[in-house]
Simulated scan of single mutants.
Amino acid sequence: MQPVSMIAVYFLFWFLCLFVVLPFGIKTDREMGVEPEPGHAESAPHQFRAIRIILRTTILATFCFGLFYANYVYGWVGIDFLDFLKPESIRNTG
């Protein structure tokens, strides 16, 4: 795999993991016992900790990319694994 492709795939994993990690550990003003300020959304977080979210996202994305790359190198799951999706007539001829 080309290094540029590896970086591109890693960033795809990173942004996917960002949306997975984002809602965890977030508490609203009401959950913290504070009245929200006028004009703020009810669902807005009480304290937004970007560094914590970035760190969690990076760890999860690195783990997921590591699994992806290991599968790419060792071929654990490939086209043959998904052979059950093809009809029987195509499976026997190819």
Results as ranks from 00 to 15, higher is better:
residue 33 G to M: 03
residue 68 F to V: 02
residue 74 Y to M: 08
residue 45 P to N: 06
residue 71 N to Q: 05
residue 52 R to T: 13
residue 32 M to E: 15
residue 48 F to N: 01
residue 61 A to E: 03
residue 58 T to I: 02
residue 37 E to A: 15
residue 42 E to I: 03
residue 59 I to A: 11
residue 65 F to Y: 12
residue 40 H to K: 15
residue 40 H to S: 13
residue 31 E to L: 02
residue 44 A to M: 11
residue 60 L to G: 04
residue 23 P to E: 03
residue 65 F to T: 11
residue 62 T to L: 09
residue 65 F to W: 08
residue 27 K to E: 09
residue 39 G to A: 04
residue 74 Y to L: 12
residue 64 C to F: 15
residue 75 G to N: 10
residue 75 G to M: 08
residue 22 L to K: 11
residue 59 I to Q: 08
residue 54 I to K: 02
residue 43 S to P: 08
residue 30 R to E: 11
residue 21 V to E: 10
residue 37 E to Q: 13
residue 53 I to R: 06
residue 42 E to R: 10
residue 26 I to Y: 01
residue 69 Y to F: 15
residue 73 V to N: 04
residue 55 L to A: 14
residue 71 N to L: 07
residue 23 P to Q: 06
residue 71 N to Y: 02
residue 25 G to S: 05
residue 22 L to A: 15
residue 33 G to P: 04
residue 48 F to E: 00
residue 53 I to M: 04
residue 40 H to W: 14
residue 67 L to N: 10
residue 40 H to V: 14
residue 76 W to N: 00
residue 40 H to P: 00
residue 58 T to Y: 02
residue 53 I to E: 01
residue 20 V to Y: 08
residue 30 R to V: 09
residue 69 Y to H: 13
residue 76 W to V: 01
residue 43 S to Q: 13
residue 28 T to P: 09
residue 54 I to A: 14
residue 64 C to G: 10
residue 72 Y to H: 08
residue 26 I to E: 09
residue 43 S to L: 12
residue 51 I to S: 15
residue 63 F to Q: 03
residue 70 A to V: 07
residue 25 G to W: 04
residue 50 A to R: 04
residue 74 Y to K: 12
residue 67 L to F: 13
residue 65 F to R: 01
residue 25 G to E: 05
residue 56 R to T: 02
residue 24 F to R: 03
residue 50 A to Q: 04
residue 32 M to L: 09
residue 50 A to V: 13
residue 72 Y to S: 05
residue 68 F to M: 06
residue 66 G to L: 05
residue 52 R to Y: 08
residue 45 P to L: 05
residue 65 F to L: 07
residue 36 P to Q: 06
residue 24 F to E: 00
residue 60 L to F: 10
residue 27 K to A: 04
residue 25 G to I: 04
residue 69 Y to S: 11
residue 64 C to Y: 13
residue 43 S to W: 13
residue 21 V to C: 11
residue 39 G to L: 05
residue 69 Y to T: 10
residue 32 M to I: 07
residue 35 E to L: 15
residue 70 A to S: 09
residue 53 I to W: 02
residue 76 W to C: 00
residue 35 E to C: 10
residue 54 I to M: 13
residue 60 L to C: 12
residue 66 G to V: 00
residue 37 E to W: 11
residue 35 E to R: 15
residue 76 W to R: 00
residue 32 M to T: 12
residue 60 L to V: 13
residue 67 L to Q: 10
residue 35 E to H: 10
residue 27 K to F: 06
residue 67 L to Y: 07
residue 56 R to I: 00
residue 21 V to G: 01
residue 48 F to R: 02
residue 41 A to Y: 09
residue 21 V to F: 00
residue 32 M to R: 14
residue 53 I to Y: 03
residue 58 T to L: 08
residue 27 K to G: 00
residue 43 S to T: 15
residue 61 A to W: 01
residue 29 D to R: 14
residue 47 Q to E: 12
residue 42 E to M: 10
residue 36 P to V: 08
residue 25 G to Y: 03
residue 65 F to N: 03
residue 27 K to N: 04
residue 28 T to G: 10
residue 38 P to K: 14
residue 75 G to A: 07
residue 52 R to E: 13
residue 25 G to F: 01
residue 69 Y to D: 03
residue 33 G to F: 02
residue 36 P to A: 06
residue 38 P to C: 04
residue 35 E to K: 15
residue 20 V to M: 08
residue 46 H to P: 01
residue 62 T to C: 06
residue 55 L to Y: 08
residue 32 M to H: 14
residue 46 H to Y: 15
residue 31 E to S: 03
residue 70 A to T: 09
residue 46 H to S: 05
residue 71 N to A: 05
residue 23 P to L: 06
residue 34 V to T: 01
residue 27 K to V: 07
residue 72 Y to K: 06
